[in-house]
Design a protein around this nucleic acid. Structure first.
Lengths: 208, 208
DNA sequence: AAGGAAAGTGATTAATTACTTGCATGAAAC
DNA sequence: GTTTCATGCAAGTAATTAATCACTTTCCTT
């Protein structure tokens, strides 16, 4: 019987968890399932992780890091903010669409109630993402491509909510529609909401 | 020992499920928990429902019906579409903010994998809601208060996604922020995206 | 080659949980 | 008043599952 280093095994286990979560949802992924997928005995899992939740934590951590890596160029890039935002949405949705386990993991009840630390990890990722987005919006405002009266914080939160909602819908629909193409749709709605309005026309317009 | 009719008990059980779900999340609401809350023995649950999932189904069904009731006036009302949409968002968020069990129930893994019928109930509610919203958007377009090039179906889906995302954030945050006040925020972003644009000004404007 | 740490296993365990069974009892119908 | 039946319960079952234990095997270091 060949053996593998702890590092390797841990990665295999995390990978198996994510794959299984994508297939079945987080709830029924038991340590037995994971062990079977990896090809080791169930107790061996506990050689590598102190308990079940630690596997979840490791998985979230790994994905969260990767996501921020992928998106960093959009946040700290130089170009105009609107172009970067548009690209950001596309990349983000593409990233998620390749990892079906992620939404299932994040939306899973097990995750939220069972381990406060786990919940904190998720919140941390979302918060960090949101505040970077807020920063991007601010840049856009000072660049003049977004409307001056835009509330960066509120808007950032709403954009994140919109993405979450989309992803949830996608997950609930068993990944039936191509998530990565929703970036365009989203942008079509978002763009006129962010864009600085044309200079006010002389004639009176419809008012609420 | 006083006894109650099946009808009454069923309602009590559904109510207990919703309350407990709001408190703990759907995952750990066991039949024992429900029984304790109602004040009956655990096996008695199964006198009133054939199995656990049937309770969930009943709960969803009840809430879904109530939601559509509350929102119907906004869908089929007479006023201008933008006013009705704005009101719709407010009412919807208020409705949900009073029923914390609902998001926990809808987002719960248990619901989605365990019983396809349950999943169908949720999808049905969402689909019905989305298509009514689409209709409202169409009305708005022909009334002239929404932009002519708005894609009603896509936009309706996005609005629903936005609400879902908001609700999810609210639920993940343990209901920390007042959901019903997010209607205004949402509208602030949405309004300029839907509104028919001012007539094109003579001077060239920023283009991508 | 020796020795120790790390990776692996089968056998168990303790807890949880949906659901069954057999029996009792209250309330309404006759 | 007795029959009937839905409502109720205590006790139990079968299945699942995270985690432990005692022990073996492999690999790395010296």
């Amino acid at each position: 019987m060949k053996r593998k280093s702890g590092e390797e095994r841990r990665e295999e286990i995390v990978r198996a968890l994510l794959d299984l979560t994508a297939e079945h949802g987080a709830r029924d992924v038991s340590t037995q399932d994971i062990a079977d997928r990896v090809g080791i005995a169930q107790p061996t899992i506990f050689r590598h992780f102190p308990n079940r939740d630690a596997i979840f934590r490791a998985a979230l951590d790994s994905i969260g890091r990767k996501l921020l890596d992928v998106l960093t160029p959009m946040f700290s890039g130089r170009g105009s903010a609107d172009v970067r935002l548009r690209k950001l949405l596309a990349r983000q949705l593409r990233f998620i669409s390749r990892r079906k386990g992620l939404p299932r993991l994040i939306f899973s009840e097990r995750l939220h109630r069972e381990d406060p630390e786990l919940k904190a990890v998720v919140r941390d990722i979302i918060d960090r993402y949101t505040s970077r987005l807020e920063e991007l919006l601010r840049e856009g405002i000072s660049q003049g491509c977004f409307r001056r009266d835009l509330q960066p914080a509120e808007t950032a939160r709403l954009i994140v909510a919109m993405i979450q909602g989309l992803v949830m819908r996608w997950s609930l629909s068993d990944f039936e529609f191509p998530l990565d193409q929703q970036g365009e749709v989203l942008w079509r709605l978002l763009e006129p909401a962010l864009r600085t309005p044309e200079p006010p026309p002389p004639q009176g317009s419809t008012r609420t």
